[in-house]
């Protein structure tokens, strides 16, 4: 229902520039994930869209309207905070209703909305508890429920799952995906550190680095066609192997990248090396191999017998999957 447009948006805290001119055009109903290293400005950008931070320059439009100077409550955004930000002295029901009471809704409508979003998130049996008496996952669901009941045009999430344990994170991630499916015309912007969250949830991923956009694209775009060395090393887990020096120069690049899953153990492979460490994860095994030609690289091999450290072997890169980068970090055709 609401397109979100950023035009040359900048942010400085005093004399420190944090966001250096960002242009983005997010379609209505799109699920967009902001990723980037710590301190790159993800939260700041999200908070600027929410209205919690002033915009130092450029223009923000939501649903075609300029929003730079509109109060947070009037932007039609709802935010889910990393720390949940639940009112500790209110019950779940009161937490969800409190924000709605400003919106001049009738008692009945508030009750209806709260009940509906509680049911959607299966927290209706917790309505009379205080946040203290909830688990982390339940709190997060209440925070999401509170945001839903505002029926926002734009949903903002700032690392909503980072305080949850691994199993719960997976469950909640799936729930958020389902939520997006159900609220398909609500635009969602989601900040995360987590590769998997970004890859699985996003329609499009925005990779930020030091206050600039590095690349915008679908998850597969970013994985297959990284627009820079930075994106190449940032997307994918474990990281892409980056090889410099003579081996790269022989391929006409300052640096070549190959993902662990595109390296194979092969008798006649061009790179000879020794296993330094093996990580068997059950479904995959990652070998850390020290090679003469490519330096230290990580290789993904199918599960099964794991070579012990010290084993000598040869590696062959999948030529079609090699990424070549110039000295400036830009990809070479």
């Amino acid at each position: 229902m609401a397109r979100v447009e950023l035009q040359a948006v900048r942010k400085s805290f005093g004399t420190v520039d944090v966001i250096h001119g960002i242009d983005l055009d997010l379609a209505s109903g799109e699920f967009v994930v902001f990723v980037g290293p710590s301190g790159c400005g993800k939260s700041t950008l999200l908070r600027m869209i929410a209205g919690l931070e002033d915009i130092s320059g450029g223009e923000l439009r939501i649903g075609g309207e300029k929003m730079n100077d509109v109060l947070p409550a009037k932007r039609g955004c709802a935010m889910v905070f990393q720390s949940y930000a639940l009112y500790p002295h209110m019950t779940v029901r009161e937490n969800m209703a409190f924000g709605l009471e400003q919106a001049r809704l009738s008692k009945r409508e508030i009750e209806e909305r709260v009940t509906q979003s509680a049911r959607m998130l299966q927290i209706d049996h917790l309505m009379d508890r205080k946040p203290k008496a909830l688990s982390g996952g339940q709190r997060q669901r209440v925070a999401i429920g509170r945001a839903i009941s505002r029926q926002p045009r734009v949903f903002l999430f700032d690392e909503p799952l980072s305080n949850l344990d691994a199993a719960l994170r997976v469950d909640t991630r799936i729930e958020i995906a389902a939520l997006h499916h159900r609220l398909h015309d609500t635009t969602m912007i989601y900040v995360t550190h987590d590769q998997v969250e970004a890859m699985t949830l996003a329609d499009r991923i925005v990779v930020l680095n030091a206050g600039k956009v590095e690349q915008v694209g679908t998850p597969m775009d970013l994985y297959e066609r990284p627009a820079s060395r930075f994106v190449a090393s940032f997307i994918g887990s474990p990281r892409m192997n980056l090889i410099e020096g003579a081996t790269a120069e022989a391929m006409g690049a300052a640096c070549v990248g190959i993902r662990p899953e595109h390296l194979h153990v092969a008798q006649d492979g061009p790179w000879a090396g020794k296993v330094v460490m093996a990580e068997a994860l059950g479904s995959d095994t990652f070998l850390h191999v020290e090679t003469a030609e490519a330096g230290r690289v990580v290789v993904r091999i199918p599960p099964g017998e794991t070579p012990t450290p010290g084993t000598a072997l040869h590696l062959a890169p999948d030529a079609a999957r090699l990424h070549r980068f110039g000295a400036d970090g830009a990809p070479l055709a």
Partner: peptide
Amino acid sequence: VPDDIYEAARMDGVPAFR
């Protein structure tokens, strides 16, 4: 008092006195 709940309240447009 944690700061984040004040931000949540700002998003909801809760007037200062309330």
